[in-house]
Design a binder for these strands. Structure first.
Length: 840
RNA sequence: GCCCCGGUAGUCCAACGGCAGAGACAGUGGUCUCAAACACCAUCCAGUGUGGGUUCGAAUCCCACCCGGGGCACCA
């Protein structure tokens, strides 16, 4: 409430100085909202549904500026939907499995749950103080057994469908976190989480067969254009990396006189005549199988050398080519020539077949290799450029085929597509190859050698092999390990938990062992948005009907860092669940908003730079509403915002001004605005109308500016216009309050009460707009001569082109500008503009 | 190297191809005050990164370049 005054001042001064008590208002309404409960989503509501979701946090410490920004933006959308009359599902929970808790547990000799659930409570309290419209009845934690029971269930279902399998393969290993990582979690050769350089290990691990869904993951992005950031779609497209080409069979002639056929994948089968050697990935099993006995040692040494090299070295772009001759030859299927077979690490074991045909003339990598090891270069496409063999620059472009089997081959053709089609058809006819599509996407490595995650519900039996834990025995609950028991040692700490790991085989009853790895936490978060629809459901991961009611997510908000992680995995899960008949849709998130990052003084906030901004301190100094307003007003939601450019003090000042309006209104609640001041009413209705359009377009910063305008206009009307008693002033103040409720819920609630209404303003409903008030009484038409403004005319908005032109030509200033010049053309855009073009 | 996104007052940001300014921050001057803070009023500040083009008219569309940010980068 307003501050204590001494009474020396007159009423006007008092009113001008009046401010509300930010803390008091927050406390008052936070308490009141618990009973008012305006945001619990009703499963049975007849209203149209909207599902608003913001990426749930990992519980590391308290909330920070990043959380404050994303939830403030997200809340604007959710609250707008409520005001528009939708039944809104807006849940929140915690992604509560993960390494930080485990590391803290080791440090403090405790169970990871201690750290986890303590932080969850801290964050929960902070979220509540922050005034967000979450439906807390649906709160979930992925580390709760009631939740991860269903993560395990889904794993088993995926396995039944052949989508979860185990294989031995070289994998990414983070030496610091002591666990394997998925491809998506390795960035520039380093661990996504801790930045440690990743090494390779040969391990048997669990995978999800995402590659089976590569084409659908690509195709189903099509309808997302326009509602997902183009950037994310591009990232996913690149990550999936579809390419078209052909498989071509080469016969290999081994040292022992036998022959075997090896397929290679190429996007340029049309250059097959120029394939003068073959290259095999040194670490592919094929290399070891085919290497000639006298080269075995060399190959082994080379293999050792590249195993030692980190991905960082391997990825260096200017790195010289290395390799060894395997002492074997292959027959080029179209020329019949015998070509040498080499092993080189520029060929990757896990892409295509791990072997390539090398066409040095038209592929830079092959050319570099050929020049280094003196291998022949044969040009088969004449692009008009100089001979690659001499320049060292491969010509990858289009041209005319030469040296390509004469007229029976491709010679003379100059259309690449036709060349590819012809050679592919010929290979197919001869049974030596076929057209093929390839993807860069790899299967998702999901096992982790750490404790604080969802156990993999598999039992390894010597007699039966891998046995699924029977459904009625789920969940496989984590044992009570803590402190030193959790120290990473290269295998999961679970392996050492004797009592836990040793079980009888559910199939044959002999002693067996549980799988001791846990799942990647991205598995947990790949389906949480479905669980929210029926968080207490006990007969499955979710109630199919509830998901039919609420799904898919209409608006997802979160950071762009998950472009190829969480978002790709969730899309994959949704498609599998669709195929299982459990969800109707194939895409989980209809619209996506990537909020920007909050930085300070041009740099990312960090301890070492000492430029961190404490959310708690900002909230204490300026209040929740001002901080939220500051973040929303800072700029377009997807832009990064620099805290140093912002003014939470300015935001608070504005909120005080807005609040003051609610005390100045003297007309009673419920008064008919129809008789009110038309000028102010026009502004109010136009603002409400435009605000809706801007909100639909997620132009939240502009909405705030519009509300500021309306506040300014209302202030002016009270002080120097129609006065505080005019019903239009009440109408304007109420519109301000409802608009403000999306961003600054506390002060809006307080204003709503002061205006004589019952809470909650959050459910007051969007103000209705009178179309007639959107039409201006008169508009200013601009008259230009040669594009330069010469006059302004006040005209009716529905003025005819002819009338406007006549008025413009009659204008004195226009006549002066036209003096002595001939009018060549008059462009009329009624009612806004006339441009007179004069003769040359 | 390739592909995206963005360059508008001192700052953050607005502007259906049609008056460059909606809003704010920071200045400056004033009213109020013993004085200050608050509040209020007024006011200063750019011709839109550069160079071309299309158009009656370009911040907006096209081309090239410069700068900043992001992504991809031996994927055959």
């Amino acid at each position: 409430m307003s501050q204590d005054r001494t009474g020396d001042h007159d009423r006007t001064a008092d009113r001008e100085h009046a401010t509300y008590d930010v803390e008091g208002v927050q406390e008052k309404w936070q308490k009141a909202w618990v009973d008012l409960d305006p945001f619990t989503a009703d499963d049975d509501s007849p209203r149209e549904k909207r599902y608003a979701l913001t990426m749930f946090p990992y519980p590391s410490g308290d909330l920070h500026m990043g959380h404050a920004e994303v939830t403030a933006l997200h809340d604007v959308i959710a609250r707008y939907w409520w005001q528009q009359g939708y039944e809104v599902l807006n849940p929140m929970g915690w992604d509560s499995f993960g390494l930080p808790a485990e590391n803290a547990a080791i440090r403090n000799d405790e169970h990871p749950a201690t750290y986890t659930y303590a932080n969850i409570e801290t964050q929960f309290d902070s979220f509540q103080k922050y005034g967000l419209s979450f439906d807390w009845t649906r709160r979930l934690h992925t580390s709760d057994p009631e939740y991860y029971r269903w993560t395990q269930w889904l794993f088993l279902k995926f396995r039944e469908r052949g989508l979860a399998y185990r294989k031995n393969s070289p994998v990414n290993w983070c030496p610091k976190d002591q666990t394997v990582l998925a491809n998506e979690q390795v960035v520039d050769g380093a661990c996504d989480r801790c930045g440690t350089v990743v090494t390779k290990r040969e391990l048997t691990q669990w995978y999800f067969k995402v590659t089976d869904y590569a084409q659908r993951l690509l195709d189903d992005m099509e309808p997302l254009h326009g509602s997902w950031p183009e950037r994310v779609l591009t990232l996913q497209r690149n990550w999936i990396g579809r390419s078209e080409g052909a498989h071509v069979d080469f016969d290999l002639h081994l040292a022992d006189g036998t022959t075997r056929t090896v397929g290679v994948y190429t996007t340029r089968p049309d250059t097959l005549y120029g394939a003068t050697f073959m290259v095999v990935a040194p670490d592919a099993p094929l290399a070891a199988e085919i290497v000639a006995p006298d080269r075995r040692e060399q190959h082994a040494a080379y293999l050792e050398e590249i195993r030692r090299a980190s991905d960082i070295d391997r990825l260096a772009t200017d790195r010289a080519k290395t390799g060894v001759d395997l002492g074997v030859t292959a027959t080029n299927p179209v020329t019949g020539e015998r070509v040498p077979v080499w092993a080189a690490d520029y060929v990757l074991a896990d892409y295509g077949t791990g072997a390539i045909m090398a066409v040095p003339a038209h592929d830079q990598r092959d050319l570099d290799f050929a020049r280094k090891f003196d291998l022949p270069v044969r040009r088969v496409v004449d692009t008009g450029e100089e001979n690659p063999e001499e320049t060292g620059v491969a010509t990858a472009g289009d041209g005319t085929y030469v040296n390509s089997g004469g007229a029976d081959g491709l010679d003379g053709l100059s259309d690449k597509a036709a060349g590819i089609a012809r050679i592919t058809a010929r290979l197919e006819a001869e049974g030596r190859g076929q057209g093929a599509v390839n993807f860069r996407l790899r299967d998702w490595l999901l096992s982790r050698q750490r404790f604080w995650g969802c156990p993999i519900p598999i039992i390894h039996c010597e007699r039966c092999g891998e046995v699924a834990v029977p459904e009625d025995q789920l969940p496989v609950v984590l044992p009570e390990l803590k402190g030193a028991d959790l120290k990473p040692k290269g295998v999961s700490p679970l392996a050492a938990a004797e009592e836990w790991v040793n079980v009888d085989c559910p199939q044959c009853g002999v002693p067996a062992k549980r799988d001791s790895d846990t799942m990647d936490t991205f598995v947990d978060s790949s389906w949480y948005f479905l669980r929210y629809c029926s968080p207490d459901y006990t007969d499955g991961p979710f109630d199919v009907e509830a998901v039919r009611r609420w799904g898919p997510v209409d608006q997802y908000v979160g950071g762009v860092e998950h472009a190829v992680l969480h978002l790709l995995y969730s899309r994959f899960f949704t498609k599998v669940l669709h195929d299982m008949g459990m969800v109707d849709f194939v895409e989980p998130f209809s619209a996506l908003l990537n909020q920007g990052v909050v930085i300070n003084r041009g740099k990312k906030m960090s301890k070492s730079l000492g430029n961190g901004v404490s959310l708690g301190e900002q909230l204490a100094e300026f209040g929740v509403d001002a901080v939220r307003l500051t973040l929303v007003f800072a700029g377009p939601p997807e832009d990064n915002i620099d805290w140093a450019d912002l003014s939470p003090a300015g935001s608070l000042k504005f909120l005080q001004r807005a609040w003051r309006l609610s005390g100045d209104v003297t007309s009673p609640a419920g008064v008919d605005p129809a008789e009110g001041d038309v000028a102010l009413r026009r502004i109010t209705h136009r603002t409400v109308h435009e605000a809706a359009e801007l909100l639909e377009g997620q132009r939240f910063n502009v909405v705030v500016a519009r509300v500021m305008e309306l506040v300014n206009a209302t202030r002016k009307a009270i002080d120097a216009g129609c006065g505080p008693a005019d019903p239009a002033v009440r109408e304007a103040a109420e519109a301000v309050t409802i608009l403000l409720s999306l961003v600054a819920p506390y002060v809006a609630e307080e204003m709503w009460e002061r205006l004589g209404h019952a809470p909650s303003v959050a459910r007051a409903g969007w103000p209705s707009v009178d179309e007639r008030l959107l039409v201006q009484e008169s508009v200013t038409a601009v008259v230009q001569v040669q594009g330069k403004v010469k006059a302004r005319l006040e005209v009716s908005p529905d003025v005819s082109e002819a009338d406007l032109e006549a008025a413009a030509m009659a204008d004195e200033a226009v006549q002066r500008a036209l003096a002595g010049r001939s009018v060549r053309k008059v462009i009329v855009r009624a009612p806004k503009l006339v441009n007179v073009v004069v003769g040359a």
